[in-house]
Simulated assay, not measured.
Amino acid sequence: MKKYKAKANANIALIKYWGKENEELIIPNTSSLSLSLEALYTETKVSFIDSDKDKFYLNDQEQAKDELEKISKYIDLFRDLAKNNKRVLVESYNHVPTAAGLASSASAYAALATALDALFETDLSKKDLSIMARRGSGSASRSIYGGIVEWEKGQDYESSFAKKIDNPGLDMAMIIVLVNKNKKSISSRQAMKTTMATSPLYESYINHSKEDLEAIKEAIKNKDFNKVGEITEHNAMQMHATIISSNPPIIYFEEDSIKAINKVRELRTKGIPAYFTMDAGPNVKILIQKSDADKVMEELLKDYKESDLIYSDIASEDASVEVLEC
């Protein structure tokens, strides 16, 4: 029996996705834009098994009942599409700290969708794979692709999907400062719900995010790295201001997050273009020009251990799959 192994890269949003218009179909309230990162990825193997239930291992650890139920429900989407009720063994390996605000769910569901498409022989297009990945985790829609990716909000199941954005030659890379590798105390999914229900700033955030998306696409088109960075920083801080204004307040910042942000600002005073962003977690991502990577790392290593820093080029390859003979 054949086993299929898929690989997908995590992505970091420059224009954030925060909140759903449709919870069940995972249709967002705004479109978003991200960079796929070469250094962060998930590899997932899938195969059919003779069993009355699926099996799910993450990093060689068999997962608890609630995680298995979540994965089985997702596999049901492919079972229904293929009209095939066989049970599946899922063996997933995250080369990303799980649930630490580093988009592990994005790469995980993009890899799983790609592997299941091969296993169930559903032969989905990239657009349809993006839609199916979205059903597992919204940001996973973007991890089907490498490079710069836009997730179009859409209005329904078929129109909400990700697509590649042409890069006219922007010189970009990213460095992640690992403030905290542990699982965050409040999941993105729960924090989104609380923010939408209670934050007085949420509607303003949605409106400004739409403006930011158009502005950053124009800056990309014009190869204006500094403008891309400025928009990225402001969009992230708008999102966090909105989250903090929830009731009760949700704060992902830690003391070392502020330290890292101030370090990025210090880099700019030294004439090195660098800009920060943060997702739903304390870790800080620094957008830089690849040509400045050595200088930036030299500066960061004055304050951080090498093990606390992850450098990544922008991943150019889309999610891929290979056949393993069992």
Rank of each mutant, 00 (worst) to 15 (best):
S204M: 01
K210M: 08
E211M: 14
D212P: 01
D212Q: 07
D212W: 04
L213A: 10
E214S: 13
E214P: 08
A215E: 12
I216W: 03
K217V: 05
K217F: 10
E218T: 14
E218N: 15
A219N: 10
A219V: 09
I220Q: 08
K221Q: 15
K221H: 15
N222K: 15
K223W: 07
D224F: 09
F225A: 09
N226L: 07
I231P: 01
I231F: 05
T232F: 09
T232V: 07
E233G: 05
H234C: 04
N235D: 13
Q238H: 06
M239L: 13
M239R: 03
A241E: 07
T242F: 12
T242I: 13
T242R: 07
I243F: 06
S245P: 04
S246D: 09
N247F: 14
P248W: 13
I251V: 15
E254K: 11
E254S: 00
D256E: 15
I258R: 06
K259M: 02
R265H: 15
E266I: 00
E266N: 03
L267V: 01
R268N: 14
K270T: 00
G271I: 02
G271P: 07
I272P: 00
I272S: 06
F276E: 10
G281R: 04
G281M: 04
G281Q: 05
K285I: 08
K285H: 15
K285E: 10
K285Q: 14
I286L: 03
L287Q: 02
L287V: 02
S291T: 06
S291P: 01
D292Y: 10
D292F: 11
A293E: 09
D294G: 03
D294S: 04
D294M: 03
K295Q: 10
K295P: 04
K295E: 09
K295C: 08
E298M: 02
E299K: 07
L300M: 15
L301G: 11
L301W: 04
K302C: 12
D303F: 06
D303V: 04
D303G: 01
